[in-house]
Design a protein around this nucleic acid. Structure first.
Lengths: 221, 221
DNA sequence: CAAATTCGAGAGCACTGCTCTTGACCGACG
DNA sequence: CGTCGGTCAAGAGCAGTGCTCTCGAATTTG
């Protein structure tokens, strides 16, 4: 079971990729609920039992798709995180989240909707899942972060968090960015899942407004 | 097919309720994904095909559960919406959302997670789904709502919304409450789905902080 | 009382995830 | 170079699913 040396290993790596690609294709069109191992195998011209040599269960395949989705979103945001001012960077990054979500609805639903496999997210997904909030934190650190008052219990959690997370933000600013983070994804999720229909949907205008408001809130001009 | 007159109609109404109750029980323990018509029927001592006399499909059963969940959450919030000041009412209502969500994880995931049946939420669910935001709007109206500047396109949407929604809030205040609404549910969803694990989980402290911040933001002392 | 409607039960279809066995193929080791 | 162990795809099969259809029995309606 070495790295990609022998022909067999190469073939295995390629097939693993092809399976994921086909699964992602079916996910994009039919949704995670409809994703079927047998249909993926059929589409690849093999029999369903052969697929189990590459993924031990359907949930493992879905988990692989989840990790890929987190990374795809992370890449999209990283690529959008450009601009002369922190404000531009913030707006561009937030917009990238929304646009990626709109362009990959089912993948977004997979990672930010109800967790389908089991109660807890697999450990492998937490790393890639932290990329976007870390980017937001970095942008906020480049601004003028305000350190408002924070209750003691929360302050302890935030201090512990500040020790793990790169940018040296004070607890108050950290709390504000976390709040903005939850707002951003709450808003995007609401738009995607039809919760805004009777109110501010189409949500583009409201999205821009909210992003600006939160930028101001976290101390970005 | 009259109202509950004959013995048959009574039995039908009762069985419909029993089916929903059993389905909700299985939903609570196993999650929406695992909810099985056949298991529900089995648990009720009948055969699966008999169940189709009461719900034409699994999705229709789930839709009924969704409506009930919206109403249960709405009831919980309505009951919690008490307090001497708008600030108390706001805090109590927001806390009721979180506590209901934590006590009914799978039901919450059903209504605020990825929509399982089809792309669009059935029309019957939008009414009950507006109860919580309407409550929040009412509380904000009892405070001192600030009318900040709002971009033109959004202003048009908000003015249209203001004509439909009871409390006479100016557009700027309306926008702020919508933002707070998305933040609240984004935060609760994040906590429930494990997104806050490496940062501010357990989230009780952060939740209180965010609720207070948003109260201030919508003009509640 | 008779006719019409509603109902539960059962069989059956197409599908799912997953397991196990059977041969074929490949790669390393003597 | 040959053998031998590991890897692989294929197929059958199991238990489960949503859903449809048919068939008697029960009940409401005329």
């Amino acid at each position: 079971m070495g790295a990609g040396r022998t022909a067999r290993d190469k073939a295995r790596a390629e097939l693993t990729r092809e399976i994921k690609d086909e699964a992602r294709r079916q996910l994009a069109t039919d949704g995670a609920h409809q994703l079927s191992l047998r249909a993926v195998a059929r589409s690849l011209g093999m029999v369903s039992s052969a697929l189990y040599r590459y993924f031990p269960s359907r949930d493992e395949l879905v988990t692989a798709l989840i990790i890929d989705a987190y990374n795809a979103l992370g890449d999209a945001v990283d690529q959008a995180d450009r601009g002369a001012t922190p404000g531009e960077r913030w707006r561009n990054s937030c917009t990238a989240v929304r646009e990626w979500a709109l362009a990959h609805r089912h993948e977004y639903a997979l990672i930010y909707g109800s967790p389908i496999p089991g109660y807890q997210a697999p450990q492998d997904t937490v790393g890639p899942g932290t990329r976007v909030p870390l980017t937001l934190l970095g942008i906020a650190a480049a601004g003028d972060p305000p350190d408002g008052p924070v209750p003691d219990g929360l302050r302890a959690q935030l201090d512990a968090l500040a020790g793990v997370v790169p940018p040296g933000l004070p607890a108050g600013a950290l709390a504000r960015v976390v709040l903005a983070w939850t707002q951003l994804f709450g808003m995007v999720g609401f738009e995607l899942f039809g919760q805004l229909v009777g109110s501010v949907d189409p949500a583009e205008e409201f999205f821009g407004f909210a992003v600006d408001q939160m930028a101001e809130y976290v101390g970005i001009a």
